[in-house]
Design a protein around this nucleic acid. Structure first.
Lengths: 229, 229
DNA sequence: CGCATGGTTGATCATGCTCAATTTAAGTGG
DNA sequence: CCACTTAAATTGAGCATGATCAACCATGCG
């Protein structure tokens, strides 16, 4: 079974033998990270770009009074800290949600195919942030939740971590709340109405979107696209 | 008087003679855009990256039922559509707010200094998006408004388009509402309390933040930083 | 002068929050 | 395998921020 990360990058751009080898090399030097560990801390220097081989993380920002906002989720195959800057400072904290396997992201110079995959990945990250802004700014609780779940489904499929409408959702309701600008109580209630309306099945960390196309249609969601071809 | 755009890029990274010349060349081939004109339309192909020489634009996303979200504002010196992708699709619509002067952004290959400035600009854009997510997700109306105004002040200063706490704010209250996930009515009321509390002076499109440091402190805001040095 | 856009105000309503308690699930060590 | 501990999910009651609806001004421009 290929790494989900390699599956994803291969879905974003065709990987030739060179790129595959470079990625396999990097993956061979992976390290494990425990849940809750802060891989990157806001305000500190960013060393090297990382590639998530497996597991989930959250990009987080803390407010002075204890409130926190989850800016986005990071999934297998996602890249962290890509930027062509000299001495970059981390703009947000990144904390592991599940046990993770990560490695240094191979340099783009090593493979043109890799460069293309990185570019698409970066464009997607940008698009997901725009989606997050739209959710928070102009959607109600049900729309936010449905839209987020559909995005996660779409993204996890790229990494082979979802089949049909089903995937493992290792985030607590409080985590979802912090991502969607809601309270955990309200997330709980919204999830219950979605269950009652047969939009989702959620049991012990396994979530199934019963009819993704229908749900997407209901909330007016379009799949994310960043390039032709 | 130098172009505000050149002022900004020079503030992000030292521009040598080469970079300055390249920028001046590009600026010489500028074009004007009328307010409300959509420079880029979501879903269409992106041709060339652009540089805003002067004027304001908004990055917008429309929902199927007419709601709209302003994802962020684009100011003099900001770059549009930077990406190293093959055939990129615009992830959002970009519409002029004021009359604008824009030009093709000179290619990074033309100058190492320019490349550095672009990288910092891109990192800043990323940071502003994170700030926008945090505003929408975890701040109340007053905090959102104060934080946005302080960000605009900070950004306009880079382009020499703000002095002291004062700058021209060419956005309607409805525009601000669409950016902050509020209604124009509530923006109006929040602005009034800010005036009553002597936090701002706002009259005929000219806004003054009376005491930026104090206001920033009140809402727990830190200035945006993306690199050492 | 008239129309249009944007700003202002008031009254009422609703979505989602707060607070607080209770149940369930998941570990953990004996 | 069970008692004990802790994190997560669930439920209820009351509340508040901000939305909605509907006028009504102010300003500017043809």
């Amino acid at each position: 079974m290929p790494e989900p990360a390699i599956l994803r990058l291969g879905a974003l751009a065709d990987l030739d033998a060179d790129a595959s080898r470079v990625l396999a090399d990097a993956a061979a030097r992976s390290r494990m990270v425990k849940p809750r560990h802060e891989i990157i801390v806001e305000g500190e220097d960013v060393k090297e770009p990382l590639l998530i081989l497996d597991g989930w993380a959250a990009r987080i920002r803390h407010l002075s009074d204890g409130r926190r906002q989850i800016l986005g989720f990071l999934l297998p195959g996602d890249l962290i800290g890509l930027c062509d800057q000299h001495r970059p400072i981390a703009a947000s904290t990144i904390a592991a949600i599940t046990p993770m396997s990560i490695c240094a992201a191979p340099a783009v110079e090593l493979s043109p195919a890799l460069r293309r995959a990185y570019a698409v990945s970066r464009a997607l990250e940008h698009a997901y942030m725009l989606a997050q802004i739209t959710r928070l700014g102009r959607m109600n609780a049900h729309e936010r939740l449905a839209d987020l779940l559909l995005e996660l489904l779409e993204r996890l499929k790229l990494a082979g971590r979802a089949s049909g409408g089903n995937f493992a959702l290792p985030v607590t309701q409080e985590g979802i709340a912090d991502a969607l600008g809601l309270t955990s109580v309200h997330v709980n209630r919204t999830l219950q109405t979605m269950r009652r309306d047969d939009e989702i099945v959620l049991k012990s960390g396994s979530l199934t979107v019963v009819n993704p196309a229908l749900l997407a249609d209901r909330i007016g969601r379009n799949p994310t696209r960043v390039s032709r071809g």
